[in-house]
């Protein structure tokens, strides 16, 4: 008798084991997302969109209708679907390059318009699918294929602060947070709140998840975990950056451990 590992109900068992590298954070983000979908009971209504980059490998991940789009363009595709079918729960899943570089205009404008979609972005500090180039989220001094001597902030600036940017430009009824695959319970909680915001038709919701890429970081298990838990949060603060006004009024305890400056 084969032992089937415990998987979220929303996952599609036929396509497991999944296609991500060993130690990759995507599987964990998608596990938290699967559980969030299960707990909210919305699987039947979910339309999932994935980007280019490693996120595209999730195109057959869920037992949910899925569209794999172009680099950075998942946000407008999901926006188009949501506008035409407001009863669907539209989730755009992408990496840091897709959300903060090539598709930044889409993220910014979807947030500004307060589109009732959920954007989930995996931040692993590099372009992984293309072989580990500098991303908008690459840390200062961090070595990548296009910054072989380390990222020089004088030349290429500082890492993008995504949830903070979204919080600054989106509507009062939007949700923006940063979680990490190092704390799946918290990440699932953020994802649930994000989806809840869409379910209740309040507004835009955005969750960045700090994620791991041992393949391109060239790290062993211990160093991977250290980078994820110790190094990344120095630049990327974990917590909720914006909670919808209605929710904030109801409870102050939901405020994250870091607030917008």
């Amino acid at each position: 008798m084969t032992v089937v590992p415990n998987m979220p109900k929303a996952w599609r068992i036929e396509t497991k084991p999944h296609k991500f590298c060993p130690g990759c954070g995507h599987g964990l983000v998608l596990k938290a997302l699967g559980e969030a979908i299960d707990e909210l009971g919305v699987q039947e209504r979910v339309v999932f969109g994935c980007d280019i980059g490693c996120s595209l490998l999730s195109w057959d991940f869920f037992n949910a209708d899925t569209v794999q789009t172009h680099h950075g363009r998942t946000t407008p595709v999901m926006t188009g679907i949501k506008r035409a079918r407001p009863d669907r729960i539209c989730i755009a899943y992408m990496g840091d390059g897709g959300g903060y570089a090539i598709g930044a205009q889409h993220l910014v404008n979807a947030a500004t318009r307060n589109e009732k979609i959920t954007v989930i972005l995996a931040n692993n500090c590099n372009y992984a699918m293309t072989g580990g180039q500098m991303a908008p989220t690459t840390l200062p001094e961090m070595k990548t294929e296009t910054t072989p001597y380390g990222r020089d902030v004088e030349e290429t600036g500082y890492p993008t602060q995504g949830p903070e940017m979204v919080a600054a430009i989106t509507g009062e009824t939007a949700y923006s947070a940063r979680g990490t695959v190092a704390n799946l319970r918290q990440l699932k909680n953020y994802l649930k709140k994000a989806l809840q915001n869409q379910i209740e038709e309040r507004g835009f919701s955005f969750v960045e998840a700090l994620s791991a890429c041992p393949t391109n970081w060239s790290t062993n298990a211990k160093d991977t975990w250290h980078f994820l838990e110790e190094t990344m949060p120095k630049y990327f603060k974990i917590g909720e950056v914006k909670v919808p006004v209605k929710e904030a009024k109801e409870s102050n305890t939901s405020q994250g451990n870091h607030t917008k400056q």
């Binding site: 569209v67 789009t69 172009h70 363009r73 407008p76 595709v77 999901m78 926006t79 188009g80 679907i81 949501k82 506008r83 035409a84 079918r85 669907r88 205009q105 889409h106 910014v108 404008n109």
Partner: peptide, 18 residues
């Protein structure tokens, strides 16, 4: 939309939605 890239892709979205 914010540009024609988005106008094209949202149109794809509308079509995907039937």
């Amino acid at each position: 939309t914010e540009d024609e890239i988005s106008a094209g892709f949202t149109t794809c979205g509308g079509v995907l939605a039937g």
